[in-house]
Write a protein that binds this DNA or RNA. Sequence first.
DNA 1: TTGAAAGCGCTAACAG
DNA 2: CTGTTAGCGCTTTCAA
Lengths: 338, 338
Amino acid sequence: MTTIKDIAKAAGVSITTVSRALNGYPDVNEKTRQKIIDIAKQLNYSPNTLARGLVMNKSKTIGLLVSGLTRESAKDNFTFEVLAGVNQYVSEVDYDMVLFSTTSTKQREKTYTQLCRERRVDGAILQGIRSDDPYLQEVVESDIPCVLIDIPIESETVGYVTTDNVLGAKKAVEHLISLGHKNIAMINGYKYAFVSEQRLKGYKEALSEAGLPIHEEWIADGAFREDAAEAEALRLLTEYPCISAFFCASDLMALGVMKAVKRVGKQIPDDVAVIGYDDIILASYATPALSTVAQNIFAMGYEAAKLLIHMLEGKAESHVKILETELKIRESTVKNRN
Amino acid sequence: MTTIKDIAKAAGVSITTVSRALNGYPDVNEKTRQKIIDIAKQLNYSPNTLARGLVMNKSKTIGLLVSGLTRESAKDNFTFEVLAGVNQYVSEVDYDMVLFSTTSTKQREKTYTQLCRERRVDGAILQGIRSDDPYLQEVVESDIPCVLIDIPIESETVGYVTTDNVLGAKKAVEHLISLGHKNIAMINGYKYAFVSEQRLKGYKEALSEAGLPIHEEWIADGAFREDAAEAEALRLLTEYPCISAFFCASDLMALGVMKAVKRVGKQIPDDVAVIGYDDIILASYATPALSTVAQNIFAMGYEAAKLLIHMLEGKAESHVKILETELKIRESTVKNRN
DNA sequence: TTGAAAGCGCTAACAG
DNA sequence: CTGTTAGCGCTTTCAA
């Protein structure tokens, strides 16, 4: 493997000059520089980023910490889209990304912070971490710059990107209300997610503003899981047959709800309307196609990476980025017959 | 950031001893070791993997080179599942994974080899690289150990994992034949994929062995894209109305074919049966649910990582791993009425 | 059982 | 414009 030493020898200059020439410093004779560049190319030189990182004390690498990167989680390709977005920005600015997942067997043997420090990542993006994860605090309190996805914590070294979940939920519920629905249940995600709180708030606000009563017993916890949501919806549909619409805090749960509705022999959207949240791929392929509040998840990853790297380079004006959501009306919501 | 030097000072020993103690070398007094370990913990020490990598000349990091990690590719979560599998194994054995994608804007500015060498990855896994990619050769010919997914190249430093695509395709087509279908078309992927060749071979073998003629004009190239497959199927259905079944080299293409069938006003599976390949999430959610040849993609990633790391550690018996496929019969294939 | 010293490949003062 | 020197944090001979 060629090093700058080899180049220096071949060019008859010192390694310092080689370093300077290759890194584009101005204080080097253009002829010398050209010669060095030629030789470097000829020798097929690649800089050793480990050595560089060691002396510069930064690695041009960011860590993406996710939880739940399992075989099952592929259904909900949220994580994947975030990752694709992060990767996109990162490669645009010549950084690298290393992935840390905590669902592995050796989970929790090392904390996130340890992982980050050992690998000398310059910063980290956290996604899918529950708000009650003990290590969340740890990372946030450490001096590692980080950007959280969907967790609103802000500090000198911490920023976040999210969408306006209150508004998103509100739009969904208002849509149902505009269709004539009055008995609207909600299947929420578990409470250890900030977005659950927010979407619940939006749901309640929409109802209140329309002068509709809030039935606490119509709000169930589907834990962001398809099966749990199906079970809860089944229970709700049985106990409260008057329910004519469901607002779900995720598409995956909405899919479960749709199964439940079918199981009790009701029609979607005629008897019961269903609207989800996220706009995962499956939403548009479901039958009937699922109406939903679309989040641009790829953009969330992209913006998270952008924010983090701006923070690292000291040029972030704000540590917060709020993205827009978009109501997508498909086949699963329609005017209430009643 | 604590270094072994700090620990050495605090413990009143040399850095050599600290290094040895922390790395579990036997030639250290147990009392000294314990003292050092305690101090390290107390000082919240994390080893600097850059420094270690520099001196040891290995990074305990592998690169995952993928192409097509775009916003659109999320539909086909093949890449994601491979990634999840790789990540799983890698974290089990305390390696890290860095992701290199070549769809980025700065695509091709650096070759894969350069990427790998700069980052000093110990080895690489290549996925989704077309067989005509000029850089494929480059990586394979370099001295970087690598494992290819679905590209059968083998050498001292190169291995691969794949499934038996001939057999898989054969099972699918035989299934259609057993249902009474005689006029079976095929929508294949582009030819720059090894699997396309193999699946075509399986298709032809199945037909031949059943004494059925092979109509070359019934074989179309859907380029692994949903829209292209839809267009080709539309053309085929119009030109050859006798076609009663489609074998598709991917589920995504099968989804496109299903759209085409519906567009010409025919019923699935009654008029036309459709079977795909891969078993992506969408397959089971489509209406009607898509029959397919399931590949365990997560396992492919897992096995690729396992193979690579075994190769790196000199304990790989073989450089090849062939996984099984499984025929999944759902609603899109049924007995031919004719 | 321990320590001194060299060196991995690179950057960054500081001199010239 | 160029070279000398020191040192990033770690592992590893070689001696003691």
